[in-house]
Simulated assay, not measured.
Amino acid sequence: MTEQSPPIAGPGAGAASASSPRSVNWTGYLVQYSNVLALVAILVVASILSPYFFSSRNIFNVLRGATMVGIVAVGMTYVILNRGIDLSVGSLVGLSAALTASFAHHGILVAASIGLASGLALGLVNGLMITGLRLQPFIATLGMMIFARGLVFVYTGGSNIVVESPTDAFSFLGSGYIGPIPVPVIVFIAIWAVAAWVLRYTVFGRSIYAVGANEEAARLSGINADRNKILVYCISGVLAAFAGVVMASRLTVGEPNGGTLYELDAIAAVLIGGTTFDGGVGSVHGTVLGILILAFLSNVLNLLNISPYSQMLLKGVIIVLAVVVSEWRKRK
């Protein structure tokens, strides 16, 4: 009786196994594209709940409402890719909105420039505290969050700054349309495109990934990690301030509490989009997907008459699930 030889595990066998339908890792695919599937599921549910959901008016209203947090989230993506965190962005939105509203009588260019300058200055301070004083990003930006919010209340005296008789040019950025598309949506798409291009095709973009993945290795390869971090926090500050300019233009008022909790919404969108706190992994495209998921989910919950407080509970659960899925992705 002839003894059967054991199966040979060679390249051919591996290829045959890989091509076998049984070897398809469906769990891996589901985890990898979980955010896309989540967005599709939300859209399907929303279309069932309301026949008007896919009307152009509703879609553009949802997108316009998401643009301010979306702009902040693009900057947050840079920071988290760099293995940092920026808790000050919500306060910078409020400060910029207040400054923009108070200088609106000088025209949109002057008002916006002052608002953007505030975000750049405080973003620079964040970067210097982290690189110069060697503070943890969480501590440095937490302090800035409190400081900037206090600055808003001191500047406004705790009252709204109302733009009296806003010009068409001032209101255009936040409330205007180009054809059927709201201007804020067009602006957000432009910011998304530029931010994605920088990350993929420039030396600075590649260095953000390198510093986030392994700062010491990045230094040894000749990257100025400190300068890279400072620039990232400046970008985050400027984009937060720009969101404040859009807010002031849209509402024609600077509110002391403007931008409150924007930092949490931005972090949620970044994490849902697949960027991890470990740094060096993620993309702006994923963040935009995360923004869309949060925006349309909120729209669905409103259609279901779910209270805002319950929505906050759900958002917390979503953040935790996003981190869990992110960890699974790294293991696949």
Rank of each mutant, 00 (worst) to 15 (best):
Ala241Glu: 03
Ile319Trp: 10
Leu30Tyr: 15
Gly286Cys: 13
Val69Arg: 09
Gly222Met: 09
Gly237Tyr: 03
Ile59Tyr: 02
Phe60Lys: 15
Gly282Gln: 09
Tyr309Ser: 12
Gln136Asp: 14
Val89Thr: 11
Asn299Met: 15
Val232Leu: 00
Val79Cys: 12
Leu135Asn: 00
Ile114Val: 03
Val324His: 14
Ser47Asn: 10
Arg64Ala: 10
Ile223Tyr: 05
Val93His: 07
Val185Ser: 06
Gly205Asn: 03
Met145Lys: 07
Asn61Ile: 10
Met312His: 12
Met247Gln: 02
Val162Pro: 04
Ser91Gly: 11
Leu294Ser: 08
Val238Met: 06
Val62Trp: 15
Asn302Ile: 05
Phe153His: 12
Pro21Val: 01
Gly205Trp: 08
Arg329Gln: 09
Asn61His: 14
Leu151Gly: 07
Gly10Ala: 08
Ser283Ala: 15
Phe153Asn: 03
Val281Glu: 10
Ile71Glu: 04
Thr141Asp: 06
Gly254Glu: 11
Leu251Pro: 00
Leu271Met: 14
Leu313Met: 15
Tyr209Ser: 06
Ala15Pro: 12
Val72Asn: 09
Asn214Tyr: 09
Ser236Asn: 04
Ala225Asn: 06
Gln136Gly: 11
Ile146Val: 08
Thr252Cys: 11
Leu294Asn: 01
Ser91Asn: 14
Met312Pro: 09
Leu49Arg: 05
Val317Glu: 07
Pro184Gly: 00
Val245Tyr: 05
Thr141Ala: 06
Ala268Val: 09
Pro184Thr: 07
Thr67Glu: 14
Val152Asn: 00
Met312Gln: 13
Leu109Pro: 05
Val183Lys: 04
Tyr155Cys: 01
Tyr201Leu: 04
Gly143Ala: 14
Val203Ala: 15
Val198Asn: 03
Ser310Ile: 08
Val31Trp: 02
Leu313Asp: 07
Gly65Ser: 09
Cys234Pro: 02
Arg219Trp: 04
Ala121Trp: 02
Gly143Ile: 07
Asn214Gln: 11
Asn302Tyr: 05
Leu199Gly: 00
Gly244Ile: 00
Thr67Trp: 15
Leu49Met: 02
Leu292Asn: 13
Thr167Ala: 03
Ala13Leu: 11
Tyr33Gln: 02
Phe277Asn: 09
Ala241His: 00
Ile146Leu: 09
Leu231Gln: 03
Glu3Leu: 13
Ile223Gly: 05
Ser56Tyr: 15
Phe54His: 15
